[in-house]
């Protein structure tokens, strides 16, 4: 089976600074990947390029079996197989229902089908009673759960998570992590997550990608926490304070 993502010599430059330079990366289907690294190491840039939200300056990218040409119809086709949840997920003005229905509406689904799907995902995240609530009145934890539910409505093959549990309470973190695991195992969705929380990375990840100064310095399974070869990876994974890159 071909990899879900293959990146070769992909870079991104802002002004005179190269913020990303990935020689080779393969992301395989159905795994939960975590991208780790200090601030400014290029994690979010990598995630946004893989999510087709940011155009790379050089290199080749293959996503879900297609070589990326950044052509409009290709972007739409591939983006419709992915979803993203960010640190403080944006909620559209309106109700929770409006937010959950959005991805289905833009795909041209009918009212009954939308309603049924919305009820289904609200049930999954245990927030059925919030269906008609104002999306902007939700707490941080509730908002993130709705963001995950919103991503679930479109049944993505790949789910990107950029710091999905930063600044939220422990109870919500437990629930969100449970949902992430379920999505990965039940729906066979490939998860690519950026987190600063090393414990979370250890709890959720099948694969770890360690970044430093825009480059991938090491990859591996959870054993990386004990057996990292690179001194910088060892320092970071042991919780030592490492200097910020920017």
């Amino acid at each position: 089976m071909t990899a879900a993502f293959t990146l070769s010599d992909v870079n991104k430059v802002y002004g005179s600074r190269e913020v990303l330079n990935v020689r080779h990366l393969e992301v395989h289907h159905n795994y939960c990947y975590t991208i780790l690294g200090p601030n400014g190491s290029g994690k979010t840039t990598l995630l946004r390029i893989m999510g087709l939200l940011l155009v790379n300056d050089g290199g080749k990218i293959n996503v879900l079996g297609e070589k990326i040409t950044w052509e409009k119809s290709q972007l739409l086709r591939l983006r419709r197989q992915m979803a993203m949840v960010t640190q403080s997920s944006y909620m559209f003005l309106g109700s929770v229902y409006y937010n959950l229905a959005y991805g289905l509406k833009v795909r041209g689904n009918s009212g009954t089908c939308i309603n049924q799907k919305v009820d289904e995902v609200l049930e999954i995240v245990g927030m059925s009673e919030f269906k008609q609530a104002d999306a902007h009145s939700l707490s941080g934890g509730e908002r993130q759960k709705i963001a995950i539910a919103r991503a679930l409505t479109v049944k993505p093959r790949v789910l990107f998570l950029d710091e999905p549990t930063t600044n939220i309470d422990n109870k919500s973190i437990i629930e969100i992590e449970k949902h992430i695991k379920e999505i990965n195992t039940t729906f066979k969705t490939t998860i690519i997550m950026v987190t600063h929380n090393l414990f979370q990375a250890r709890r959720l990840s099948d694969k770890l990608i360690m970044m430093w100064d825009g480059k991938i310095i090491e990859e591996g399974g959870p054993a990386l926490f004990e057996e990292a070869r690179d001194a910088r990876t060892r320092a970071f994974l042991s919780g030592q304070l490492v200097p910020t890159m920017i």
Partner: peptide
């Protein structure tokens, strides 16, 4: 409006 609005819409499958 922030970049997030556009990003949220396209990652949910919206056309441009």
């Amino acid at each position: 409006q922030r970049q997030e609005v556009y990003d949220t819409a396209v990652t949910l499958g919206a056309t441009r």
